[in-house]
Simulated assay, not measured.
Amino acid sequence: MTSHLVLETSAADAPRQSFWSHIANEIALAIGQGVYSPGERLPSEHTLAESFGVNRHTIRRSIAALCQRGLLRSEQGSGTYVEDFAVDLAIGKRTRHRENLAQAGLRGGLQVLMAERVRANADQARALKVATRGALLHLQILGEGGGQPLHVSDRYFPLPRFEGLEDVVRETGSITAAFAAHGVNDYVRHESRISARIPSAETAALLRQPVTRPVLLVTKVNTDLDDQPIEFAETWFAGDRVTLTVNHDDA
């Protein structure tokens, strides 16, 4: 039986962002914007400390956090280096693909690979609060950023509420824009489940990675502001290109 880490993404009271986490985010943004290229060595701790006006202990903690997130790697006696390709994507109450990429200094969007009408299975029906065998719109979507495939997803939307949603996604490359065109101007993520999996041959090919390399599978449910489920999705993230940071602080 596969175990899952259940992450409730409802907003919670949290302390003000610390100096080290703020600096870590600034460095992550610089990496996304290409200030530090893949494989490039970062300036020394002393140089970074002077640049940010903090002590070296604070910089050391920031770097350690970015290493844990997979954006940097430290080599003893050599220095700290940017990983070959690393994008830090947030999973929060209001997670948007384009906003995630913009914060990392990248451009990208969503591409519809396939659209079809299907009947809800038991899991989909439970998540979307529809009848089993109820009508759903199924989209297979590829998410890109910086010219690289970052994730591929199977997304399900209740019909007839979201009839024609695929046309807006094709035109705009945005689920958010498609929801807005269907009267949903804001929505939130109710739940995320994250697990590591070996991808299928099709998923591995779409992500341009070997089938033997694990991916991160995120299963999510989005709801409108009336707490009505509007999307159930399973998304496979390229494990060597993406770090997922769970953000409990967004409102």
Results as ranks from 00 to 15, higher is better:
His138Cys: 14
Asp154His: 15
Thr132Ile: 13
His151Lys: 13
Ala251Met: 00
Tyr36Asp: 02
Val82Asp: 07
His151Tyr: 13
Ala181Gly: 10
Glu99Ala: 11
Ser200Phe: 07
Leu139Asp: 02
Asp226Ala: 11
Ala49Asp: 10
Asn100Phe: 03
Gly164Phe: 05
Leu89Val: 07
Arg69Glu: 05
Phe85Ala: 02
Glu75Arg: 15
Asn55Ile: 07
Phe19Gly: 02
Gly164Leu: 02
Gly109Pro: 01
Asn222Val: 00
Gly108Pro: 06
Thr58Ala: 08
Leu244Met: 11
Val184Trp: 03
Gln228Gly: 06
Gln111Glu: 13
Phe52Asn: 05
Asn55Lys: 11
Tyr156Ser: 00
Ser37Val: 10
Arg126Leu: 15
Ala120His: 07
Arg126Gly: 05
Asp84Trp: 10
Val54Pro: 01
Arg16Ala: 03
Ala196Val: 12
Ala24Ile: 02
Val211Gln: 14
Arg73Phe: 06
Gly53Ile: 04
Arg197Phe: 01
Arg117Ala: 09
Asp227Thr: 08
Asn100Cys: 12
Arg73Gly: 06
Leu136Thr: 03
Gln228Phe: 06
Val218Met: 12
Ala12Asp: 02
Val168Met: 06
Arg133Ile: 00
Asp167Ile: 01
Ala205Gly: 07
Arg61Asn: 13
Phe232Lys: 01
Ser174Ala: 05
Gly109Cys: 06
Val215Leu: 12
Ile23Pro: 02
Ser10His: 13
Pro15Trp: 00
Val112Lys: 01
Phe52Glu: 10
Thr203Ser: 13
Ile175Tyr: 10
Leu225Trp: 08
Ala115Cys: 10
Arg208Asn: 14
Phe179Met: 15
Asp13Cys: 07
Val6Tyr: 14
His22Arg: 15
Ser74Ala: 15
Asn100Val: 02
Val184Asp: 12
Ala49Tyr: 02
Ser10Arg: 08
Gly147Met: 09
Ser51Thr: 14
Tyr156Ala: 03
Met114Glu: 15
Ala11Glu: 03
Ala180Ile: 04
Ser195Cys: 01
Pro149Arg: 03
Gly53Leu: 10
Ala11Trp: 10
Val215Trp: 00
Gln33Tyr: 11
Ala102Arg: 13
Ile31Leu: 08
Ala65Arg: 08
Thr172Trp: 04
Val218Tyr: 01
Ala233Arg: 00
Ser21Ile: 05
Glu83Phe: 06
Arg241Asn: 00
Ile27Gly: 04
Asp240Ser: 14
Leu5Trp: 06
Gly34Ala: 11
Thr47Pro: 00
Ala233Met: 15
Gly147Leu: 08
